[in-house]
Amino acid sequence: MGVDDILGLFNYWMVIVLMMIGLYTVVSRGNLVKKIVGLNIFQTSVFLLYISMGKVTGGTAPILTGKPEVYSNPLPHVLILTAIVVGVATTALGLALVVRIKNAYDTIEEDEIQAADDEKEFGDAAAAEDGRR
């Protein structure tokens, strides 16, 4: 693997590091808002992956100028425009759910929600036990 390979792949490696920081934020953090932020980073990094592959060295933005020029690939741009919209839609829905969860549980920490649910579950089970006796 030569210097050219490293330079030619460095962009992708950096993007992968970004993706993994985002993914790690999602899976490791218990705060519901922080998870959504993590998802955003994860998705934005995937956008960078797509756009990186469309780049042509020495190319310009794919807007026709009438002069003969090298253009970067427009197709990844189109796909990512769509993906960004999907991302913001997910964010909006996720945050709306967080607001509702806060109203229902009075916390947005996963552990505390889990604890509240367990208490309710076992509380229910105990109540049912009483009912049977």
Binding site: T44, S72, L81
Partner: peptide, 15 residues
């Protein structure tokens, strides 16, 4: 910088 001006515009407006 990667020539995706439309995407950059959208990302700035959204993100």
């Amino acid at each position: 910088h990667l020539d995706a001006v439309d995407v950059a515009f959208t990302e700035a407006a959204v993100g």
